[in-house]
Simulated scan of single mutants.
Amino acid sequence: MPHIEPPQRLVRALSESVPGTAASAWLEGLPSAVERGVAACGVTVERVQVPGGRSSLVVLVRRGDGSPAVLKIAPERFRPAAELAALVHWGGLGAVQVLAGAGDGVLLLERLRPDVSVRTLPEAKATLEAAGALRRLWVEPPAGWGEVFESVTERTGRQAAAMRGAGQADAEVSALVDAALAVREELVASAPEERLLHGTFRQSKVLAGERSPWLAVGPDPVVGECAFDLARLVRDRVEDLVGSPSGAAIARRRVKKLAEVLEVDQDRLRGWVLFRAVESGVRARRVGRDRDAELLLEFASWLS
């Protein structure tokens, strides 16, 4: 089997998000985890996908019949069991198809085209194609979903607690944090019908496939209202938005357009865009990604 070297993108992301020595321990155990996954799924390794993702190792493999596939291995912190459950529930409709689940964070998935995402399209078309792909995922969650998936209220509650501490310690972001926390309280108090959501959806999470033009990958599934799932898509290409003199107007038009196309409440979508942008900005600031934090918080200020 070829030598397994985790991409630097994954190494950096794990160092930011996994506490203590857990990240280094997981990375040290990767070669053994790959060997177990290869044996359990009966595949042969081609190579590690680079740059790959920020929460998992992605290995390009071949099945016994020679067909291509992807072996994905993720730490428990990134909820691989929930990802598996969501992908199985979607059954390949709108999302990458599961070929096997080997436990211990190992998934065998159909191989898509990692070099061709919706993000490669012109901005306006990319947004609409991504929205169309996302719509297909919004289905009723399975019975007993609370045993596998978080709710939007639960996930954002944890995030809100972390944001509250950051806002108290950092006067520069306190007003934005206060606004984001207030809008979250309003949103969770009156949530509409619950659906199974992708959870971390953006343009780069939609890849070209053979059996369908575009398929979603890499969910961090959650159950809640659809507007929550659109919020990250609104700020896609945030560096271009902030660099544009009409960035604020473009962002507001995106909110309006996506709300209309996907039939969600515009004010609720704007609220979730604000909350999620501030949460991401505060988190980026906490781990030293100052440029990302600056972009996200400026974007959030347009909606507060």
Rank of each mutant, 00 (worst) to 15 (best):
L241E: 09
I250C: 14
L274C: 09
L196Q: 06
P141T: 08
R77H: 13
W138Y: 11
R268Q: 10
R62W: 08
A227D: 09
V98Y: 11
A208C: 12
L108H: 09
A277T: 09
R270P: 00
A95T: 15
T120C: 12
R268G: 10
R54I: 10
G209S: 05
Q97A: 15
G165R: 13
G94T: 07
V173G: 01
A13T: 08
G132D: 11
R158W: 04
Q8E: 10
R164I: 01
S190W: 02
R253E: 10
C41I: 06
L215I: 13
P245L: 05
A284L: 03
D265I: 03
G29M: 03
L99A: 10
V45E: 05
Q168N: 06
Q159S: 13
A126I: 03
V45F: 01
L207Y: 08
E263T: 14
D229Q: 12
L30G: 09
D220M: 07
R12L: 02
W302H: 05
I73V: 12
V183K: 05
A69H: 11
R285E: 05
V45K: 09
V18P: 13
H3A: 15
Q203M: 13
E260S: 15
S56V: 06
A179M: 01
G37K: 01
A179K: 02
A227P: 14
S204D: 12
R63M: 08
A180C: 09
D290P: 00
A169R: 09
G218T: 12
R164H: 06
G144L: 09
R113N: 11
A69D: 06
L108Q: 04
S24M: 00
W302A: 04
P31F: 00
R211G: 04
F228L: 08
L128N: 10
A126E: 02
T200M: 02
